[in-house]
Design a binder for these strands. Sequence first.
DNA 1: GCGGATCAC
DNA 2: TATGGTGATCCGC
Length: 572
Amino acid sequence: MVEPLPSQETASLVKRLAGPSTGKAGLSKDQTDINRVIADVSKGSKFYENEKKKDKELSKKIEHILHLRDDLINRPGVNLAKTEAQVDQILHKLESERDLSQTIVHFDLDSFFASVEVLNDPTLAGKPFAVGHSVLSTASYEARKYGVRSGMATFVAKKLCPQLIMVSHSSSYSEPSHKVMEICSRYDPQMCPAGCDEGYLNITKYCAEHNISSEACVEHLRSTVFNETKLTVSAGIAPNLMLAKICSDKNKPNGQYSMPFDSVLIKSFMKELPIRRIPGIGRVSERLLESIGIKTCGDIYTHRATLSLMDKQFGLIHLLRTHLGIASNTVQPPQREERKSIGAERTFSPLQDKQKILDKLEEVCAELESDMEQTQWTGRTITLKYKLDSFEVFTRAKSFDRWISKKEELFAIGQELLLPELPLTIRLIGLRVTKLKDLRGPNPSTGIKRFFDAGNSPNPNKKPKLADSEEVPDENLPDFASPANPSVKPSSSRNEKSRTQHQSPFQRETHQCPVCDKQIPTENHAFNAHLDSCLSRSAIRQAQAEARPSPKQAQGNMLERWTKMAPKRLDR
DNA sequence: GCGGATCAC
DNA sequence: TATGGTGATCCGC
């Protein structure tokens, strides 16, 4: 029974099946054919059915958003010209705070795992091969010509490229990764690694001290990396992290691209840029934005009135800044105390038998205990995650008034959360611990090693930290556990992070206005005064739009939950 | 605090 | 035949 779906529906499903990484990089012109093959291979599988279901729900959500948009636009008192004028005011304000003074670099090793494998087995050079097990981590550039992508199931990749050579994660990647990070950190000791194969630098100081151009600096960095590791790296140079990241993709592999440090040229660059290229905009956000006519960053301006009316759904300020090509330009190493969770999960062939499922849970618990022990974290909220053989994912959580570390405890809690859900057919079990407490004292380490050993706050000036308070073993205990000391949220109160959002390095700075990213004096008064002035404009707009308090940060999630699914349970 | 969902790597 | 693991964030409730 072939039931014809609306063409939009199939198109988006076919695209969805092609995998998350499709569309991020440049797509070849016969991507449509490739997507067709992928869809055909997948058809009928449980994975496919689940993707289809998710795609349908997204379509419904879009329908709802379009109705909401029409409703808002036609609301009495709404004047689109006036709304546009107000947005233009915000744009003017944002523009006036553009900072072109810092030179940011994003570096990215070219197909890192694949390149390391070639070094270990030179016969792979020039051949289509991929690294991974059931799902690909990386594909060589030859394999990519066939449409093979990371995140793709191996059997699908083989269908696209029958000659594809599969290589399992044989080598150790950490040594070359550390070596590259060490080299890059020579150009900025505050380097921020982003995963094992990329990172951010602020080379402003380095270039000034060595009296060289940023281009020459990055050429030097890239050739040094190559000489010392035989790995090629691509890089982007720009006035902020977002642009640098986008630029590093432009001349990949083994190339670099420099953004002009000129607001007019930056804006013309952004105008044609597909929104999907913006870090943080994935396949879902892409479809949502596309539904209201936004495909490129230039379209953000065209539809600014709609976005203003639908700030709640789309996050106006963040999109406006994106359209202008404005983003954070502060680079700092990740800090240990910023960690929010630690977890472990495992996929296996679907299991129904209760005892077998519990065995898997126990394994996961043992793994988690070991990781927590090694990294010296404990926590008081435990979240169980399970995935059915239908690929639907669920979580169940519980918080405690004590710190959980031992596998026996983890296992007992895991069972408590899981057993009421059974019987089920499960293909994945995971456990995650949040509300963490650092068992390692704030013990600043020295040298380059800090990048690799999970942090250890390398910023001594940032945390004078009362010498005795850290001796109190229960400093992080929640209120009810230490009634005498109501000073919860130590990590927020220690350094004014309570109003800052960290999402990726793009917004990780400590004393930066979330609206305009200006660096603000750390005194609360100055910071809040600035923030308020920054947000007042959106407040005006909001009042007209319909109501709702002011948006508290620039980065709005586009996916407000508007349909409530029954908290799915298999009926027995 | 909990659960669902998106996103990056 | 068959589609990963870790961590973060956001939203609604």
